[in-house]
Amino acid sequence: MAHDHGHNAPPSDTAMRAKALETLLTEKGLLDPAAIDALVETYETRVGPRNGARVVARAWTDSDYKARLLEDGTGAIAELGFSGVQGEDMVVVENTDDVHNLVTCTLCSCYPWPTLGLPPIWFKSAPYRARSVIDPRGVLREFGVELSEDVEVRVWDSNAELRYLVLPQRPAGTEGMSEDELAGLVTRDSMIGTGLAQAPAG
């Protein structure tokens, strides 16, 4: 069989195991490899934190939308065209001067795919899952977020089928910025709660 990759390293045992399963299921008519191509393409190019940033920027600029978003996350997010796998039932939690929210999944890796894409490795890692609930302030510090003790830290453990998105605080000095410009300030981590939205340049 010809090598279909441009590099010379032999495939790993894991790659071989994956290939064996895909081949066997394809031979049995239980898998269409083109469907996997389409899924990979979808999650590599169409689903990611830019989607969530659009939701946040809309909430920052449209108070009616924000009210709907906090009341019915799934419905309000779907208004912008984002829905589906691992975002079927969404809850949006708002950061304020008094409350900071942090999302985790201690049991596995639950994460709101339609708005944030697939989770980064650190979110799925043992250190984050273990520590996020017992020492959230320490975790935040590790991410460079220092909060005063006056700010309540709420950790959301996504153990059931609800998926959580943090609505970060709108940075100061962004009055008059367009929705598109604002979306550019919304980082992935600010929607997980391990970061804050960026301050505007200049």
Partner: peptide, 12 residues
């Protein structure tokens, strides 16, 4: 590359 294939196999 195999990670994407394994990811997709969840759906199939």
């Amino acid at each position: 590359e195999w990670e994407g294939r394994v990811f997709g196999m969840f759906f199939t």
